[in-house]
Write a protein that binds this DNA or RNA. Structure first.
Lengths: 243, 243
DNA sequence: CGGCGGCTTGACTAAATTCAAATACCGTGG
DNA sequence: CCACGGTATTTGAATTTAGTCAAGCCGCCG
């Protein structure tokens, strides 16, 4: 597939992404070796993969997850356009988690050695990559707080709030609704809940006119109640680097 | 307090830590601006602290945590000698989590701008710092899997197994026992359980002759059963950088 | 000795899971 | 257009797990 033109990348038009200077852009361009289209529901990285590639999600949704040997699955985080995929994995012997697409997705593929060259050639970009790693860690910290200390309804409110804000930041809203390409099973697996209980809690949020999610559409009916319910702190979404 | 001598640091004698070359060592030495001793049970970093410092834990135990506004606390991870403290926080506006000591602890204090200088001056050390960040993220991923998808006994087994292995890696065992400076309340807060239920599960593990933890002493009675119970994967502990 | 923090236990309650079954939605092929 | 099959959602009931409340105990320190 044709190489994308990084300096012209439409993602960069979004205000969430930090401006990159000429040098950085040309370096990023050099790191990219291809562009890949993956259908919905496919694995981008398998748990345990040796030497997996590094990608940037260009379009579509995906998620990171881990499984226990008896099949129980825990979703660690959801991935949206602009997210780096497989960067942590590249630093170790094998991928510590799997990544699967939720929708058809386009990926920018990085050359295998680009990680190291990043550190050698560009302190700024190395810093950016580290920033993204630290940021991802922060998100998982938040999720751990959610799963460990919030009850079912609070968990759902916190997760939906988070996804809503992330999607809004990259202009993925249509009016007041959001097309969330996930099922209730994904919500359950992200929050450490059973599918049935997830459904019941979701219905409760709907009954209370707080939010409505079904068939992949999320509508925030009462954002304020949502925030209260989730004990959600509005850390202003920082500008993030795009590599 | 007297500056420590990094090249002679006794921590570096442990086989878990990667060899650092002369240049790296001297740079690390330059970054260190002091050495600090903190009593047990004190906060090193408070949630929300603006511009917190970066430290390396030199001796003692600590833990990272977050709280909800009504006081519910979630421990994110435990910190042992060699761990970086506050590195992620330094990259953002404010510390996203707090850090508290479990024992008296000694900290190597880094100069405030050292993070950035690291990236500028030494690709190797920058890579190491990123590696540590990515590694920490991996641990939180594991914890999220534990809290989200394991039941109470499995959670406890997984946590104790993890702490045991970490402590062993830096030669903190005394015979087959480990001095774990935590209370059952810490275990509960790390695993998203109530104190009472934690106690009951711990007693069950003891009754089954799998492990025994009380008064800060952990004895592994049946490591194999422990592993099975926790569905624990023995990823060989990699050599890690020490900054 | 008294007090305090941490551990232990039992009884009760609440939350979440499991099981089971019905219903709605969506794309395919007749 | 409708029937069909598969996936996703919804609901109720029974069960299990974990949380809450309350009290007693243990060990240590002043």
């Amino acid at each position: 597939m044709k190489h994308p033109n990084c300096p012209q990348c439409p993602l960069r038009r979004s205000a969430v992404f930090k401006q990159a200077d000429k040098a950085a852009l040309s370096f990023i361009q050099k790191m990219k070796t291809g562009h890949q289209r993956i259908p919905a529901g496919h694995e981008v990285i398998r748990e345990g993969d040796a030497d997996p590639r590094v990608y940037t999600l260009y379009s579509g949704w995906a998620f990171r997850y881990k499984t226990l040997s008896d099949g129980r699955r825990q979703i660690l985080n959801f991935l949206l356009p602009g997210d780096l995929i497989g960067f942590q994995a590249q630093m170790f012997d094998a991928a510590p988690h799997a990544v699967q697409t939720l929708t058809e997705a386009e990926l920018c593929v990085m050359s295998r050695r680009s990680i190291w060259s990043l550190f050698e050639a560009s302190p700024e970009l190395a810093f950016d990559a580290t920033w993204l790693t630290a940021h991802e860690e922060g998100v998982v910290d938040d999720n751990l707080l959610t799963v460990g200390r919030r009850n079912a309804t609070e968990r759902i409110a916190a997760l939906l709030m988070y996804l809503y804000r992330r999607a809004r930041a990259i202009d993925l809203l249509e009016r007041d609704a959001l097309a969330l390409p996930i099922t209730q099973a994904h919500i359950a697996d992200a929050l450490g809940l059973s599918l049935v209980h997830t459904n019941k809690s979701l219905r409760r949020l709907h009954r209370l006119n707080i939010c409505h999610f079904s068939h992949g559409r999320l509508v925030m009916l009462d954002p304020r109640a949502m925030r209260t319910m989730a004990d959600y702190f509005d850390s202003p979404i920082a500008q993030r680097p795009l590599i």
